[in-house]
Write a protein that binds this DNA or RNA. Structure first.
Lengths: 195, 195
DNA sequence: GTCTATATGATGATAGAC
DNA sequence: GTCTATCATCATATAGAC
């Protein structure tokens, strides 16, 4: 029985998905190819096609993965037990993690510009992703205002979608300009929300 | 001397630029090709290369055109003579025009996700575009607060970059979801800014 | 000066080897 | 089940016709 000198490539599928996610969030969906993935992993492009027959399939898997991750995160007891301002901070931490990781943008920010060129299943899944994230934040905001720990005018759901839109944009700003611009936007948000 | 039955195609260059702008703002930079342009204009791809030798050249021309347009707009006497809230409304009108025009995104929103794949000259020009737009809005906000016609906390420049980021994101939201989501964000902004 | 025929390489995908 | 050799198509770009 030969020794395993290199990763068994048994998890080629997982490695493809992880690398594809990185490429999506750092370069954009229409800016990476199966060749990029294959070269980086030391396999042939057709091997990628085996695991994800078409790029549409790969793209859909990427959005589904993020949606699953969102649901898991949102329901963590560690998170649900926090106060609204703490939950908001947890969200901001996640976004800041994107900035630190090679200035990634969020899923929405990565796909919005190219949205019309995406397969329909991917479009639909992204809408679900956004809806669930917005609903979660709206709930946090509603409780936060009721307990006087967060301050804002208007409806929680309008404020939620406005906030998430700003956060998605802020990651794009971090990419085009720098981290300083990003922090300026976040500090402005905190200034307005936290009494 | 033969009659001109069809547009003389003397302005092929201008038609290319106009169509490229539409494709950029509706589909994304990496999602359109010289073939798309050529087919739509009834010419050969190589004819596009004559006017814009490389796609990098075309992309740079697109950003430069938008920058020139911004400067012209910003300095219009019709605009500079308005009050700050009116100037803000003029800005919002421009963005809403994008939504109505096939749900276009703004230049920044179209290029941010793919930013790393863009030629350096294009990256630099987009940064200038954003900087000038932000500086203009910061000035409007500063005067608006000084005259008590606009209300916000924090520095005018931080508020300006936050607002523009939200607007860029709002156009992306309009594309992924619908016009209603867009209006919700804009109304939230107005609610917070206008006393 | 303006455009078309043509080349070169990348891209997404299939059929078949191991 | 997993991957490689190969393909048709599309992308950008050049050389040369008008």
């Amino acid at each position: 029985m030969p020794t395993l000198l290199l990763p068994p490539a048994a998890d080629t599928r997982a490695r493809i998905l992880a690398l594809a996610e990185e490429l999506l969030l750092t370069r954009g969906f229409n800016a990476f190819s199966y060749q990029h993935i294959a070269k980086e992993l030391g396999i042939k492009p057709a091997a990628v096609h085996y695991h994800y027959p078409s790029k549409d399939d790969l793209g859909l898997a990427l959005v589904r993965r993020q949606l699953a991750r969102l649901r898991k995160w949102r329901d963590l007891p560690r998170l649900t037990s926090l106060t609204p301002p703490q939950q908001l901070d947890a969200l901001l931490d996640t976004y800041f993690g994107h900035v630190q990781a090679e200035r990634r943008v969020c899923l929405f920010g990565a796909l919005a510009a190219d949205f019309r060129t995406l397969p329909e299943a991917m479009q639909a899944e992204l809408r679900i992703f956004n809806r669930e994230l917005t609903e979660w934040l709206a709930q946090v905001l509603a409780v936060g205002r009721a307990t006087a720990s967060l301050r804002f005018v208007g409806s929680p759901s309008a404020k939620a979608i406005q906030l998430l839109t700003t956060l998605a944009g802020a990651l794009q700003v971090a990419r085009v300009h720098d981290e300083r611009h990003y922090h300026q936007i976040i500090e402005q948000l905190r200034l307005e929300l936290l009494p």
